[in-house]
Computed example of a mutant assay.
Amino acid sequence: MASAPPEKMIFQLTLRRRGISDQAVLRTLEDVPRENFVEPADRADAYRDSAMAISCGQTISQPFVVAYMTEQLKLRKTHRVLEIGTGSGYQAAILSRLAGQVLTVERFRTLADIARQRLEKLGCFNVEVMLGDGLAMPPAVGQFDRIIVTAAVDRIPDALLERLELNGILIAPVGPPHGVQTLVRVIRTAGGLERKELVDVRFVPAIPGIAREL
Rank of each mutant, 00 (worst) to 15 (best):
Q62A: 01
P63C: 00
F64P: 06
F64T: 02
Y68V: 03
T70W: 03
E71V: 08
E71H: 06
E71T: 06
Q72H: 10
L73I: 11
K74M: 07
K74I: 00
R76A: 11
R76Q: 14
H79A: 08
H79V: 01
R80A: 12
L82W: 01
L82K: 02
E83R: 03
I84F: 11
G85D: 07
T86Y: 00
G87C: 00
G89H: 07
Y90M: 00
Y90K: 02
Q91F: 05
A92F: 06
A92P: 13
L95F: 09
S96E: 04
S96D: 10
R97M: 15
R97W: 11
L98V: 05
A99E: 10
L103D: 14
T104K: 00
V105D: 01
R107I: 09
F108N: 13
R109V: 05
L111W: 06
L111T: 08
A112N: 07
D113T: 15
I114Q: 13
I114M: 08
Q117A: 14
Q117I: 03
L119A: 05
L122Q: 09
G123N: 00
C124N: 04
F125T: 14
N126R: 09
E128C: 07
V129Q: 09
M130W: 12
L131R: 00
G132T: 11
G132Q: 10
D133Y: 09
G134Q: 12
G134Y: 14
L135A: 04
A136T: 09
A136S: 15
P138N: 02
P138K: 03
G142S: 10
G142W: 12
F144H: 12
I148F: 11
A151N: 07
A151S: 11
R155T: 09
P157A: 07
A159I: 01
L160N: 11
E162V: 04
L164G: 05
L164H: 09
L164Y: 10
N167C: 05
G168P: 10
G168A: 12
I171D: 05
A172M: 14
P173A: 02
T182W: 15
V184Y: 02
R185K: 15
V186N: 06
I187D: 01
R188G: 02
R188Y: 07
T189M: 10
T189G: 13
L193D: 12
E197V: 10
L198I: 14
L198A: 07
L198Q: 14
L198F: 05
